[in-house]
Computed example of a mutant assay.
Amino acid sequence: MQLAEIPLCVWRKRGQSFVFRGQTIRYWVAGQGEPLLLIHGFPTASWDWHYLWQPLTQRYRVIACDMLGFGDSAKPLDHEYCLLEQADLQQALLDYLGVRQPVHLLAHDYGDSVAQELLARHIEARIEIGSCVFLNGGLFPETHRPVLMQKLLLSPLGWMIGRAFSRDGLVKSFRQIFGPQTRPSESELDDFWSLIDNNRGTRIMHKLINYVPQRRMQRDRWVSAMQAGAVPLRVIDGEVDPVSGAHMLERYRQLIPNPDTVSLPGIGHYPQIEAPLQVLKHYLAFRDQLDPPALKTACS
Rank of each mutant, 00 (worst) to 15 (best):
L3V: 14
E5W: 07
E5S: 11
I6V: 04
P7G: 04
P7N: 01
L8K: 10
V10L: 11
R12F: 07
R14M: 04
V19Y: 12
Q23D: 03
R26Y: 11
V29P: 08
L37E: 00
I39N: 00
I39A: 08
F42A: 02
W47H: 03
D48Y: 00
Y51W: 08
Q58E: 07
R61L: 01
A64Y: 04
C65V: 15
C65N: 11
L68S: 05
G71A: 03
D78V: 15
Y81H: 08
Q86R: 05
Q90S: 07
Q91C: 15
L94S: 06
L94K: 04
Y96E: 10
G98P: 00
D109I: 07
S113N: 06
L118A: 08
E124I: 12
A125H: 14
R126I: 12
S131K: 14
C132T: 06
G138S: 12
R145L: 10
K151N: 03
L152F: 03
P156W: 03
G162W: 00
D168G: 12
D168M: 01
F174D: 07
F192P: 08
F192S: 09
I196V: 07
N199L: 04
L208G: 07
N210W: 05
N210G: 08
P213K: 13
R216C: 14
R219D: 03
S224P: 09
A228F: 04
I236M: 06
G238M: 09
G238I: 05
V240P: 02
D241L: 11
P242R: 05
S244Y: 09
E250I: 15
R253F: 01
S263M: 06
I267V: 10
Y270I: 10
Y270P: 06
I273P: 03
L277K: 15
V279W: 06
V279K: 00
D288E: 09
